[in-house]
């Protein structure tokens, strides 16, 4: 029991978060009972405006909870001073104001703030921590660069290194990848996962990027409007149907097979697809994209991918008609411009 609790760096009990203005309260999320464990990458998922940022701000002590309790290493949050909290939780936010002429190393060194004296002088130990933060995030090569010259993705890595240098058990990142392109997003998330595993920190990331979260997170926290937060390992949540249930949307549904959201179309036309391996998979993708439902049973509309010669051809038969195509693009163009009704 004691061993188990020592893994938990953060626990919330019946927490309600939101904003106070004067005497009125605006509750955004409530009945929040969460446990954050060391060495895990946790993604807090939810649509824009569901209260992800509010929850993170409350956990990190920026705003106070409306009700309920937050425990950090077993101590109630309100009993921890701001200075002591800085050694427990480090933050990374969506964007950073450009700090001007500052070297990457100097910015990362700011993470040592809670540990240095009034002048901010760095000890040998501080330098060691900074070096480690730089090398863990693979940015040692740009330590002497001016931060003003960095790209958004590089800047975010520097901010993560700064948070690492802060040497806290918990790292909280509020939409750190929101402004980044797909490659940078994946890179940052994998970096975070590696950091969680290697440094045994608890890393909590809010994002609305489901796809990346499924493929990197050790645990998901799903926030939806008016419901308690659902937690679990991503795969469990998918097989239990939680994802499909929580993110139910009239225009999109969650597809268990691909782990992706697919567009819903009002009139679904069935098509019988015969083909193999990648040709089958991507033809199917293309057909679903324009609103067809692909089946493995006989249907009036039948598409066969002819593999007898190279390059392959797509043969579409409908009633007495038959059309041949050289690529998926041609096929889709044809299907979109012709209404082939049953």
């Amino acid at each position: 029991m004691t061993h188990e609790t020592s893994h938990i760096v953060l626990e919330t009990v019946n927490l309600a978060v939101g904003y106070r203005s004067g005497s009125s309260k605006k509750t955004i999320l409530d009945r929040i009972n969460l446990k954050l464990e060391r060495g895990n990458l946790v993604c807090l998922l939810g649509e824009n405006g569901v209260g992800k940022s509010t929850l993170l701000k409350t956990i990190s002590g920026v705003i106070s909870p409306l009700s309920g309790d937050i425990f950090i290493d077993g101590t109630p949050l309100y009993r921890i001073s701001q200075k002591a909290l800085a050694k427990k939780i480090s933050l990374v936010l969506t964007g950073t104001q450009k700090p001007g002429i500052l070297k990457v190393r100097e910015l990362v060194a700011l993470g040592r703030y809670p540990y240095t004296g009034w002048g901010g002088g760095l000890s040998a130990d501080d330098h060691k921590k900074i070096d480690r933060a730089l090398s863990l995030t693979n940015i040692d090569y740009m330590a002497e660069e001016n931060v003003a010259t960095l790209s958004d993705g590089q800047m975010q890595k520097v901010m993560i290194a700064r948070a690492l240098a802060q040497d806290s058990d918990m790292m909280i990142l509020d939409e750190p990848t929101a402004f980044l392109d797909v490659n940078n997003r994946l890179e940052i998330m994998h970096l975070l996962k590696m950091l969680a595993w290697e440094t045994k920190k608890a890393i909590l990331v809010s994002t609305h990027d489901l796809d990346t979260a499924f493929h990197t997170a050790d645990q998901l926290w799903l926030a939806t409007c008016c419901l308690p937060i659902t937690t679990g390992c991503p795969e469990d949540l998918i097989v239990q149907g939680e994802i499909a249930h929580l993110f139910d949307h009239e225009a999109f549904t969650f597809d268990h097979w691909s782990g992706r959201f697919k567009a819903n179309f009002k009139s679904v036309k069935r098509i019988f697809l015969v083909g193999e391996d990648k040709y089958h998979l991507w033809t199917r993708n293309g057909l679903e994209r324009i609103g067809f439902k692909v089946t493995n049973e006989e249907a009036p509309l039948k598409l066969t991918i002819l593999s007898d010669r190279n390059p392959r051809r797509w043969s579409l038969s409908f009633k007495e008609e038959c059309h041949d195509f050289n690529g998926i693009g041609d096929l889709i163009r044809f299907l979109r411009s012709h209404t082939l009704s049953d």
Binding site: Q82, K87, S90, Q97, P99, L110
Partner: peptide, 15 residues
């Protein structure tokens, strides 16, 4: 120096 990266970050570092 902490304020250079913004007030939110400064606060999170104990300022």
């Amino acid at each position: 120096n902490a304020l250079l990266i913004g007030e939110s970050y400064a606060q999170s570092m104990g300022v």
